[in-house]
Simulated assay, not measured.
Amino acid sequence: MLLSLPFMIINALIPMGIIYYFSDYLLQLISFFSGDSIIVTIDLGVIFAMVLVLIVHEFFHLIFIPNFMKSKDIIIGLTFFGAFVHTEQIITKVRFMFISVAPFLFLSILFPLILSISGLLKGKILVFILFNALGASVDILGFFLVFVQVPKDAIIRNNGTRTYWKMGVE
């Protein structure tokens, strides 16, 4: 998780840039904090948003796994560090990389882009978008590790927490 910290910063800046460019909501929020003090409260809404982010984020991983509705090779779980969806199916490098970045792409790039352009971006949705962006940092780290270390035509298979690759066809 520590290795993903640089990605966490970049991941947060991307949706913030989209929101800043396409909406004036971020400017209103910044002017709200320009006083002498900042008050941060964590209420049930924020806790609910964090749980919702976990569920929706993992759902976006799940729906891009081949045959996810029928597969017996998919594991969905919860650990101290967060939730996870993982498959032991053999998949291509490209599919693995897409599954890794899907929640970030859809929930922290396309979702704020659509909401900002349509003028529907409001308060707590921003919290949802940022939580997802921050949480996706480990996924983005995994994406880049596979991108750099796994050959183009390789196939990938997870076994527990370990990921393996080999050249060849399924």
Rank of each mutant, 00 (worst) to 15 (best):
L3P: 03
S4P: 07
L5G: 07
L5S: 14
P6H: 11
I10S: 06
A12P: 00
A12R: 00
L13F: 12
L13G: 06
L13T: 10
I14L: 12
I14T: 05
G17Q: 05
G17I: 05
Y20C: 03
Y21N: 06
D24Y: 03
L26F: 14
L29K: 14
S31Q: 12
G35D: 14
I38P: 02
T41A: 12
I42T: 13
I42C: 02
L44I: 12
L44F: 15
M50R: 04
L52K: 03
E58W: 04
F59P: 02
H61E: 09
I63C: 10
P66F: 02
N67R: 11
F68E: 06
M69D: 09
K70N: 14
K70R: 12
I76K: 14
T79R: 13
F80C: 04
G82T: 08
A83Q: 08
F84Y: 12
F84W: 11
F84K: 06
V85L: 00
H86Q: 13
Q89L: 07
Q89C: 04
V94N: 12
F96Q: 00
F96E: 04
F96T: 06
M97H: 02
P103H: 07
L105F: 15
F106W: 11
F106D: 02
L107H: 01
S108N: 06
L110C: 11
F111T: 01
F111P: 00
F111W: 07
F111N: 01
L113T: 13
I114Y: 09
S116T: 01
I117P: 03
L120P: 05
K122L: 06
K122G: 05
G123A: 12
G123F: 09
G123H: 08
I125T: 14
L126C: 09
A133E: 00
G135N: 04
G135H: 02
V138R: 09
I140W: 05
G142A: 13
G142L: 00
F144Y: 11
F144M: 07
F144S: 06
L145A: 10
V148Q: 01
P151V: 06
K152G: 09
A154F: 09
I155N: 04
I155S: 00
I155D: 00
G160V: 11
T163I: 15
Y164M: 00
K166W: 08
V169W: 07
